[in-house]
């Protein structure tokens, strides 16, 4: 192993000895000195995860979250210096973390928190003027493709994940039943907002995001409230362009 490889391994594993060749003044041992680096790495990455996952943290408690974060950062150190996006592996990690398995909804809560973070940093875009959509003849509308804003995210969960998020972030009542929820994240200016999608609308949106025409997307979806879905998209500036061939 190279010297920095040895240094890195020992930073992330407190059971490993201090790398050779390190020294304090007058040749004295450097164990506590090396521990400063160990502590900096662990504390700063734990803090990055604390910031990214406030609801996961609230659900499992501070003490458990720190143990979870340390296990996570040792298994998955950041793959880039852009710490605002650190934690992409958290949902998969939660699925495999035995002590968290009893809380089956945690991975999807983590996915929602990651999606909100991505939306916050996504590119800005001007909203489509709703009149352009209203002016279309029905057949032109069906043949059109809708471009959604870069900050839009869609999340489908088997759990009432938005209700759980709202209970923790907005003081709403916690969900009583295990109902599946489809969530749309939009960003009107700078603050992403997650909203509940009408039942069935997610299939339609998935097809639209995949580049399908409105007509094809409708074919993919079952029965759902198209008017309510389009109003929601237009109100929050989620549609940025309309492409008619």
């Amino acid at each position: 192993m190279t010297p920095q490889g040895q240094f890195r391994a020992a930073l992330l594993d407190p059971d490993l000895p201090v790398p050779s060749g390190l020294t304090g003044p007058a040749g004295r041992p450097a164990r506590r000195r090396f521990d400063i680096y160990r502590n900096n790495v662990t504390a700063s990455l734990t803090e990055a995860l604390r910031q990214s996952f406030p609801v996961v943290r609230a659900l499992v408690g501070e003490e458990f979250f720190i143990a979870l974060a340390i296990a996570h950062l040792r298994a998955y150190p950041p793959a880039s210096p852009l710490l605002m996006f650190y934690g992409q592996d958290m949902p998969a990690f939660l699925e495999s973390f035995p002590a968290a398995r009893a809380l089956g909804y945690l991975p999807d809560v983590a996915r929602l928190e990651l999606a909100l973070r991505q939306s916050y940093h996504a590119a800005d875009a001007d909203a489509l003027d709703p009149d352009r959509l209203r002016a279309l003849a029905p057949e032109t509308f069906l043949a059109a493709r809708l471009r959604l804003a870069p900050a839009v995210r869609l999340l489908r969960s088997d759990w009432p994940v938005l209700s759980i998020w709202r209970a923790n972030m907005r003081g709403a009542a916690p969900p009583r039943d295990r109902t599946a929820e489809d969530i749309l994240i939009t960003r009107t200016e700078f603050d992403p907002e997650p909203q509940l999608l009408p039942p069935g609308a997610a299939s339609f949106l998935t097809a639209l995001i995949g580049g399908a025409t409105v007509g094809t997307a409708l074919d993919h979806a079952g029965a759902f409230d198209l008017t309510a879905t389009l109003s929601l998209l237009l109100a929050d500036g989620a549609i940025t362009d309309l492409i008619t061939d």
Partner: peptide, 17 residues
């Protein structure tokens, strides 16, 4: 300083000889 080794970013300013 260094902070990344083989794709892992360690978020600290680490020393070198």
């Amino acid at each position: 300083a260094w902070s990344t080794h083989e794709g892992a970013f360690l978020n600290d300013l680490l020393p070198l000889p």
